[in-house]
Amino acid sequence: MGILQILIVIAIVVLLVKPLGTYVYHVYSNDPNKTDKWFGWLERFIYRLIGLKNRPGMTWKRYAVSFLLTNIVLVALGYLILRLQKYLPFNPNGIENMEQTLSFNTIISFMTNTNLQHYSGETGLTYFSQMAVIMMMMFTSAATGFSVAIAFIRGITGKGATIGNFFEDFVKSHTRIFIPAAVVVTLVLVALQVPQTLDPVLTVKTLEGASQNIAIGPVASLESIKHLGTNGGGFFGANSAHPFENPTPLTNVIEILSMWLLPASLPYVYGRFAKNTKQGWVVFGAMMTLFVGFLSLIYFSELRGNPAMNVLGIDASQGSMEGKEVRFGIPQSSLFSAVTTAATTGTVNNMHDTLTPLGGLGTLAEMMLNVVFGGKGVGLVNMLMYAILGVFLCGLMVGRTPEFLGRKIEPREMKLIAIAILAHPFIILAPTAIAFLTDLGQGSITNPGSHGISQVLYEYTSSAANNGSGFEGLADNTPFWNLTTGLVMLLGRYISMIAMLAVAGSLVRKQWVPETIGTFRTDNGLFYGILIGTVLIIGALTFLPAIVLGPIAEHLKLG
């Protein structure tokens, strides 16, 4: 029954990839289509409002500077609101201004689509901050990621010198994808009993006669975009484990689909742009294969239970239920954990710190690879980066100049791809080592031994992959963690985005090389295998020593 639940959700995703991918392709193809009729009037109004009459194509450099400047303005505005929230409207619960380093961490966290929360939403943020900073950033960070991914796709599949107009892509991402989808999902969640109100905290009498405060607020609207934008976090500190965020198994499936469908449809969008949908299905197949592998690891590890608990004679028939919600059980908890770390959403419906060592390894590995569907747009860009690397390695093996989609891959592209690939493990492993070397880092570790290593490794991996979930036993709301994870989130977001836009800008100007019988094909089963192999080999070479010290050592000690 558990496996059947999982298979049904996967089947829904596979069935919806093509129609959703077709819609997304039409949104960004800039050819006249039906979606113009529905949303064109709103976009024309916005363009007039921001003085964007003409929307010329941008070179990759102009595109990168545009998205960077837009993000800087949003960061400045958000930081100001968090530091002044006490004096701003919609603060019925009298919440104070946020501390400086925590504001720094929070604003970076939400701008980079990480949504790592070193605070608890119901006590740390006013309703105004929840809506004007947190929710606003959830839309804009997702739209930024989506826009960059589409620009990258245009670069590797198109001709000319430009890769689209950032502001046009950014506006369209909001008007045609995220806002309509968020409205629909919000209404569905409200219908399924998720609160949506500006009323203050409820004070109720318990059965024992004591007084208890129950936090409520505009939950449903935040809940919808936090998943649709693969943002993560939550209105409440417990995220989607909280019954007001995720009351039933049905809302759980809706939330899983909300965060999974758009990233899953992007490979198909890439195939449409490449005028060969087989290219997209090869990438989708590689992502889904990796996903099913990691999901199986999580599911069967949790189902087996915790050996240390089992020897105590505790009933293990339900699996390892520590830190999980009874209404979801092992299947829906495992699937949620696998999807939230694959799509780098980072919201949780069970506590990842209490996953079994191998279950925790599954979630950790998905973030380390950062290509298994991935966050809004970023996962596809990373996977295509590995595809180009795979083509390059195969070219070296047969002594032929590598080509990808009819363009020669030269040292300039490989230099940029090497930086993007190597930056990810560096910004995870270097701060992890620093945390162990300093009292500031060690002082926050609440579990001795291997699990303590996993806690720190998970925190920086989650930050670098812009995921945002955590092994929350780590006491991480300190200036040391706020600043170091803040910097890791920034580097994890922008280095690969800028480098890959540069690759797109380089490829878009190149002459097409006609396909011959000797051309290495990237739309068949052989390349599907090479792509998976490239991802796993690079991942193992960079991260295996660290995960042996953490989750694998912990698993072996459990017996």
């Binding site: 450099k61 800087i72 380093t101 910097l487 280095i495 480098a499 540069a502």
Partner: peptide
């Protein structure tokens, strides 16, 4: 005062990203 440090840190990091864009531009051109 801590606010100023946070703003300077953010400005410094975003400045580095702009420098990275310029450097990537050189790699693409050269």
């Amino acid at each position: 005062m801590l606010d100023l440090y946070m703003v300077l840190l953010l400005a410094g990091v975003f400045g580095l990203f702009y420098g990275f864009i310029v450097w990537c531009g050189r790699v693409v051109e050269e």
